[in-house]
């Protein structure tokens, strides 16, 4: 069995999709709003998966700048859930510690950490850890006082009472 088909098989198994069905019609790429920021267009990414070019796929920026807008998924004539495939590719990239867009991954990590603590999102905690991890201290500095002025940031996080149930979910997810 070649390496190529192993990668395709793994992506298919984990996403529940059949990427080999893609016949390169470009419809996904034509509707995708963020192609200007991608190194491979969505249809090219599908082709690379078919060809088993694992390194290029998991190292790509495309899988991180995809906004999960689901346009491609809605339009694919072969009913490939491309956004779901990209979710799977992100997860595989994280497992192999490949993050071409480290700050995007850091955001998701900070978001989920906060939810694991309180059961609800605490924006202040999210921004604190995100900035610490990415060292982007100066980004959006103007925003915090503006949000405070509008009472849109809270120092007292809203929390779930039965937090044990949330911890259980995170434990099962092995995060």
């Amino acid at each position: 069995m070649s390496v190529a088909s192993d990668f395709l098989k793994e992506v298919n198994r984990r996403s529940g999709e059949a990427v080999q069905l893609c016949f390169q019609c470009f419809k996904c790429s034509l509707g995708c709003p963020v192609t200007f920021a991608m190194d491979f267009l969505p249809h090219q990414l599908m082709r690379l998966v078919q060809l088993g070019r694992k390194e290029e796929v998991l190292d790509s920026h495309t899988i991180w700048v995809c906004a999960s807008c689901e346009t491609c998924t809605t339009r694919c004539p072969n009913e490939i859930d491309i956004a779901k495939v990209i979710d799977t590719l992100r997860q595989m990239a994280l497992e192999e510690e490949k993050t071409a867009e480290g700050d995007v991954a850091a955001f998701h990590k900070a978001f989920l950490d906060s939810v694991s603590h309180f059961g609800r999102l605490c924006e202040l905690e999210l921004m604190f850890w995100y900035k610490l991890r990415t060292k982007r201290f100066l980004d959006d500095l103007w925003l915090a006082p503006e949000l405070l002025k509008r009472k849109k940031l809270s120092f007292k996080p809203s929390r779930v009472e039965r937090i044990g149930e949330i911890k259980q979910i995170f434990k099962k997810a092995a995060l």
Partner: peptide, 22 residues
């Protein structure tokens, strides 16, 4: 009562189980 965060895009981009369980 006692609702929790849905996980938003951060959950489904990172972990399949979390994306549904939350």
């Amino acid at each position: 009562p006692d609702w929790n965060c849905c996980g938003a895009s951060s959950a489904h981009e990172t972990n399949d189980y979390l994306a549904i369980a939350l």
